[in-house]
């Protein structure tokens, strides 16, 4: 048996307990930090998804408005308003 292993006696509980607690706490904290980082990233994805949903709603509303304007409008025979809105969407 190696000399290093030979000088590894059973520590009293008070002394060994600190090391055992430290080992378990380190692993627990490591996993906790990882899960925390992943939760933050999930929140960011959720924010991006909300932003995307708002963008889609805006595009949909603009398209609906454009379709609505496709009907012949007596007050704007040249269709100037429609052209301006089309440019805005584009």
């Amino acid at each position: 048996m190696s000399p290093l292993l030979a000088i590894a006696p059973a520590l009293p509980l008070g002394k060994a307990g600190k090391y055992v607690a430290a080992a378990y706490i380190v692993v627990f904290v490591l996993i906790l930090v990882y899960v925390g980082i992943m939760a933050l990233r999930a929140q960011r994805t959720q924010r991006e998804l909300d932003e995307l949903r708002r963008d889609v709603e805006a595009v949909k509303a603009a398209r609906e408005e454009l379709e609505h304007d496709d009907d012949p409008d007596e007050s704007d025979p040249a269709g100037r308003g429609r052209t301006e809105r089309t440019e805005q969407i584009a």
Binding site: A8, P9, A10, L11, P12, L13, A16, G17, Y19, V20, A23, Y24, V27
Partner: peptide
């Protein structure tokens, strides 16, 4: 408890 290491051997399981 381990005969040589005592309570310290509990680190083995992690």
């Amino acid at each position: 408890l381990d005969a040589n290491q005592g309570f310290l051997q509990k680190i083995f399981y992690v």
